[in-house]
């Protein structure tokens, strides 16, 4: 509600105007400043092109450390497609190595189309990690 509307209600509460007069004044005010229609078309959202990773840390004795990385999302897609060329026997060896290291991930189950879908939905990803000595931000822009 704007100031004029508040003023009308104030006058009503003080008894300077009647309820019907207040209603008429509020109606006139509404015609003068119509509310934005909710059915207005939404703004077109531009698709982000880059993934930005910003790390700021102050716990290093050598001085504050900051890392700022900008990766084009197209590069991630290209990397995923390139990774799909890894021969199955190499993936089996990598899987065995990962399992030995305590990371039981089966890379053969990762399909390029799944990874691409994941990248497509990175648009709305925002990661904020705030630590007393360090800060990590991952956003799409």
């Amino acid at each position: 509600m704007n100031d004029q509307g508040r003023q009308i209600l104030q006058m009503l509460s003080e008894g300077k105007i009647t309820a019907s007069e207040a209603e008429r004044l509020l109606d006139a005010l509404g015609r003068q400043h119509p509310d934005p229609t909710p059915s207005a078309p939404p703004r077109t959202k531009t698709r982000p092109k880059y993934l930005r990773v910003v790390v700021n840390s102050t716990d290093d004795p050598g001085g504050p450390t900051s890392v700022n990385i900008r990766v084009p999302l197209q590069l991630l897609r290209a990397g995923v497609r390139l990774a799909s060329l890894i021969p199955p026997q190499a993936l089996t060896k990598v899987n065995a190595g990962l399992e030995q290291s305590g990371v039981p991930i089966d890379l053969t189950q990762l399909k390029p189309q799944d990874l691409e879908a994941l990248i497509d939905h990175l648009d709305d990803v925002t990661v904020d990690i705030n630590d007393p000595t360090s800060k990590v931000q991952i956003t799409c822009e």
Binding site: N68, I69, R70, Q74, L75
Partner: peptide, 14 residues
């Protein structure tokens, strides 16, 4: 082809 736009910056102390 996808590389343009990529950047990496690292600052540590001086």
């Amino acid at each position: 082809w996808a590389l343009p736009g990529a950047s990496f910056e690292l600052e540590e102390g001086t």
